[in-house]
Amino acid sequence: MDASSEDYGGGPGGQSGAASPLEASLALDGDGSRIAQARHLVATFLGKAKDHCGFPIAAATVEIAQLIVSELVTNARKYAPGPALLQLRIRGPMLRIELWDSNPAIPAPHAPDPERIGRHGLEIVAALAHAVTTELTPVGKRITADLDLSPAGA
């Protein structure tokens, strides 16, 4: 997938159906416009996900997902030397947000400091997501944030 591609689909071949997860991805490069494009992808993707989930997704939940994506993409752009890949996937009532980047350093939250400016991205993601995991990959790392989309989770 090139740096300008977006892909919506329910799996291989872009086929969607109740048995397969709804997915979308966006290849990211060093262009700052990708942050806005990633936020737009989330809104569009979650608009399509309403039919897949069988329940409406609250506007506040869409905004939370956009904020999580903004933080992850911003950090990848800022700290990873190469391209990155954003993938969104619906499985049941959960949105899985995955970001692969080329920096093998595992991010760690900083100690609370009310005078610190910036570097709050991981804290924000952890506070908003149901679960956050980070794992090393052969070419960098993958950060995964799960967000509950169900009306009870909103």
Rank of each mutant, 00 (worst) to 15 (best):
H130V: 12
L128W: 04
A105P: 01
A59C: 04
R77A: 10
S20K: 10
E115G: 03
L122K: 08
K50T: 14
G153L: 11
T134Y: 10
K50N: 03
L22V: 04
G13W: 01
C53I: 12
K141V: 07
K141T: 11
V62Q: 03
Q37D: 10
V42A: 03
E123M: 07
E71Y: 03
I97Y: 00
V132C: 14
Q87R: 15
P81D: 04
A84F: 03
D148F: 03
A36R: 13
A43Q: 06
G118N: 08
L86A: 08
A111T: 12
A152K: 09
L28E: 00
N103H: 12
G92M: 09
T137Y: 06
T61V: 13
H110P: 02
K50F: 05
P109K: 14
S102W: 09
G30A: 11
E6M: 06
R89D: 01
L99E: 01
Q66H: 05
S33I: 00
A18L: 09
A80E: 01
P12Q: 03
L149G: 02
A60V: 14
I90D: 01
L67E: 13
W100F: 13
A84E: 00
A19T: 07
L99C: 13
E123H: 14
D7I: 11
E23C: 07
G11K: 02
S102N: 07
A108R: 13
N75A: 08
E23Y: 00
A3E: 13
L28H: 08
L72F: 06
S33D: 10
A145P: 02
F55Q: 07
T137A: 11
P151L: 14
N75D: 04
K48S: 09
G11N: 05
P12N: 05
Y8A: 02
G92Y: 06
G11F: 02
W100L: 13
V139K: 13
R34T: 03
G118P: 11
G47N: 12
H130R: 10
D148V: 06
T144M: 15
G118Q: 04
A36H: 05
A60H: 07
Q66E: 15
L86F: 10
N103S: 11
T44W: 02
V42C: 09
G13T: 09
A65E: 02
I57M: 06
M1G: 15
V132L: 09
A27C: 04
L88F: 08
S150P: 00
G9R: 05
P109S: 10
R116M: 15
I90K: 06
A3F: 15
P107N: 14
